[in-house]
Write a protein that binds this DNA or RNA. Structure first.
Lengths: 165, 165
DNA sequence: TTTACTGCAAATATTTTGCAATATC
DNA sequence: GATATTGCAAAATATTTGCAGTAAA
């Protein structure tokens, strides 16, 4: 299964490079393979390390940026910019990305939502070819909610203290 | 109308600062006011210039970052990270943001979509308090689509030439 | 042989941080 | 007066760019 997915994206890359007289460098294929062997989000740094240690195929930062941009334009990867860190993600056969993001702790959770996918598909955008989407739902996770309740209680105590004082 | 909106967000800020024993510095109010006088997206740089030239109230970059983060956590502004540039936006009374983004030229267009808003509202996220969302629909705008058609035609011509040669 | 691509290093851009001075409470 | 906040400058990050050497076609 995974093998055939990699084969499929390699074919897309092949095709693009041939059509545009660009070169089939080993770097490009190594990077593509590395990306499609990662599950979920990854940073450029993580990708770099994987290439160096696991794949024994270190590449320069400049090449990584170049190649990621190429893949971005071919829609073989997507980029998310979460608070502070930029994350990439393989996205062939995965055109929709729904995330819930806690605005307190920054935790990002991926969620599936057929309803949203349908709603976006039915969205009417004039003269615009939709290729995919990302949804970020912001809010507060249960963890931080209970944190906040605690803090509020402490605040109340503080106020009472300062009143009595 | 606009006046009352600014008054409303100022009250939120007031309240927060008082509750948490933080200080009501003129910077914070000047920045908040500047933000709510901007229509649509703005960069930190643009905000900086506005404060210096229009409001005659220049502040340091560090303070801008600090204050924007404060407003972010108070949900008085949102932050979008579009390709390359980070944009902010006033978001009191505007909890949903739908954008269509051309992956070729990078053009961002804001779109309204009651259906999406409803779909997100109905989304069931376990133990997560939804506060707002941003949707980014990626694709290709009509402009770039016609660009591409032209390029394809040229490519075809090139191929024919090299064949005959 | 041609030239697209890589890697390096330097340049830019962006954001964070430490700290002394300042202003709010 | 205590200390949260500002502004500055430096530091840390992140990304882009120019160019010489390398390698794919």
């Amino acid at each position: 299964m995974k093998e055939s997915k990699i084969a499929a994206v390699e074919r897309i890359l092949d095709n693009y490079l041939e059509m545009n007289n660009h070169r089939k460098t080993p770097e490009r294929y190594a990077i593509l393979k590395a990306i499609y062997n990662i599950n979920g989000h990854f940073t450029l740094e993580e990708l770099n390390e994987r290439l160096a240690s696991e794949q024994k195929f270190p590449v320069s930062r400049a090449t990584l940026y170049n190649t990621l941009n190429l893949f971005l334009s071919l829609r073989l990867v997507t980029r998310h910019r979460f608070q502070g860190s930029t994350k990439y993600e393989a996205c062939y056969d995965k055109k929709s990305h729904c995330h819930q993001i806690c605005t307190i702790c920054g935790k990002v959770t991926e969620v599936r939502s057929p309803d949203i996918i349908m709603a976006v598909e039915n969205m009417h955008l004039k003269r615009f070819r939709k290729d995919g989407f990302a949804l970020y739902v912001y809010g507060i996770c249960s963890n931080c909610q209970s944190q906040m309740t605690k803090v509020k209680k402490l605040d109340k105590q503080d106020k009472q203290k300062s009143k009595t004082k």
